[in-house]
Design a binder for these strands. Structure first.
Lengths: 154, 154
DNA sequence: GTGTAAATGCAAATGATTCCCATTTGCAGA
DNA sequence: TCTGCAAATGGGAATCATTTGCATTTACAC
């Protein structure tokens, strides 16, 4: 059994310098209840008086992403890139069109043999896939159309 | 049996004015072999000496999208919105990470009961979903890593 | 401790898309 | 066929997310 590695060790292994920015950004991502945009991370850091520049946030996220410590996620209805810490398991999302809430789904419902058959039929080598369901969360189902319109304008 | 409607009739029914721009843009989309960005449509129109402004291309696509004549598609690895004519059938895509080629898959491999069970388990009302497989097309599988790197830099 | 490559800050650049407003055009009704 | 007006358009400025250039600072190997 391998010991759980500290963030410091992880960085060392990846030949990345261990900087306060990187530690804080990873912490924020791991604490977040769902994938968040660079901007939110920036705001979060400012809130705790951690001074940082927005470009550093982007650069850090890019570096973490290249090193498989975070995933980039692009969803419909939000043109920003969202970030989540890399999880141990493959998963998908339910995405609320009303409030943007993102619910993680841990099982992958795709049939076992699907990738193989897609590959064979299309002479294509699959390396990943993305599945998202869009709709309305419990709260937003209760809102009227007018409520929703207002929400989208914020 | 209903007659196949002309584009003119379709526009009339939707209370949209029939303009040369709209006709041409729809034609380009229907002729395209895969979803394309606004910019390509703009370039295509210029090529055939059809003068138009880029903002009109965007506005037209937005209008057509609101009226369910075209679909907007957001894929990973391309921050632009792509557009395709609305097809009669639900479908998904294989997307090549090497050259951006998009292959349409006509069947939907999701289990019949999936949406219902996701809805019940998460108190969520699903209205649509999106499934994409990323990988390498026949051509790009043959390229070396260096070739691919070059490609990505174009 | 020191040198150096990596990381950062800040401002300017970029790329996609939207918005503003003056002008033009499709088309419903006279 | 003519006319009026709402809808559509052109063109440029504005916006929003993200990237880049460059001078300065910092982590860490030695």
């Amino acid at each position: 059994m391998s010991q759980p590695s500290s963030i410091f060790d992880v960085f060392k292994q990846l030949k990345l310098k261990t900087t306060p920015h990187r530690i804080e950004i990873l912490k924020i991502l791991r604490t977040a209840s769902q994938p968040i945009p660079a901007d939110d991370i920036y705001a979060e850091l400012r809130k705790i008086n951690h001074n940082i520049s927005l470009s550093t946030v982007y650069r850090t996220l890019e570096t973490l992403s290249e090193n498989s410590l975070v995933n980039k996620i692009g969803i419909e209805n939000d043109n920003r890139t969202l970030y989540e810490p890399v999880a141990d398991s493959h998963h998908h999302f339910l995405i609320c069109l009303g409030c943007g809430k993102i619910i993680k789904i841990d099982e992958c419902p795709l049939p076992e043999n699907l990738e193989k058959s897609l590959e064979d039929q299309n002479n294509f080598k699959i390396v990943s896939h993305k599945l998202e369901h869009y709709g309305y969360c419990a709260k937003c189902q209760k809102l009227t159309n007018d409520d929703l319109k207002n929400k989208l304008h914020n």
